[in-house]
Amino acid sequence: MSVTVGTVILLFFLFQIKHMFADYFLQTPMMLSGRGEYWHMGRALHAGVHAAGSAIVLLIVGTPIAFLLLLIALEWFIHFNIDYGKAHYSDKMELQPNQARYWHAVGFDQFLHQMTYVAMVWAWLTYVT
């Protein structure tokens, strides 16, 4: 296995660990309440936790600081808006965990976050290696 392939696998692995902690273990009540409004400080902080975690991941693989800052700023913006879209849709449709559409929204939200990591790894491969 080449260093690049091994590093790509490591990046995806670390992004998954970061995502699990940021999305499920590190959310506070402030981050979880009032998410249907667009500018929500809790959502901004939640996206910041994701960005900080990604910064750690990218530092581990030796990403140049300027590129790292650009990538995590984009991730913050994208994560913030993906979460807003899910919250807005879920509130508008009055979705509850006992409804299939609730889980469709959660699944699509998680899919979009995973595609963000694919794009970040692609950018890292294209501009860093």
Rank of each mutant, 00 (worst) to 15 (best):
W103Y: 15
A51L: 09
G53S: 07
W122I: 03
L125H: 06
Y84V: 10
H79A: 00
A51Y: 00
L58E: 04
Q96A: 15
L69S: 02
I82V: 15
M120I: 05
W122N: 05
M93P: 00
F80Y: 13
F77M: 15
S90N: 01
F77S: 14
K86R: 15
S90E: 15
A73E: 03
A105G: 10
I72R: 01
K86M: 04
H88Q: 05
F108A: 03
I60M: 15
W76H: 11
H79F: 04
F80H: 06
Y84E: 06
A100W: 12
L74K: 08
S90M: 11
F80A: 01
D83H: 03
H104F: 11
V61T: 08
Y102K: 03
I56K: 01
I60L: 15
A123M: 14
V57T: 08
I56V: 10
S90Q: 15
A51S: 10
H113V: 09
H79S: 11
Q96I: 10
L125I: 02
A87F: 07
A105L: 00
I56L: 13
M120N: 09
V121N: 04
F67V: 12
F111H: 13
D83P: 13
D91F: 13
H104W: 15
G53Y: 00
L112R: 05
V106Q: 13
G85F: 08
W122Q: 01
H79R: 02
W76S: 12
Q114H: 11
T126R: 14
A105R: 03
Q96K: 08
M115C: 12
A105I: 04
I78R: 02
P97M: 06
N81W: 09
G62A: 02
L95M: 06
H88F: 12
H113G: 04
R101T: 10
D109S: 05
M120D: 01
E75N: 14
V106G: 03
V57C: 04
R101C: 03
Q96C: 06
I56D: 04
I56E: 04
S54I: 00
W76G: 09
Y117S: 12
L68K: 04
L74Q: 11
T63Y: 00
Q114W: 09
P64Y: 01
T116N: 09
A52E: 03
L74A: 14
V61H: 02
G85T: 08
E94S: 11
Y89R: 10
G53D: 04
A51G: 08
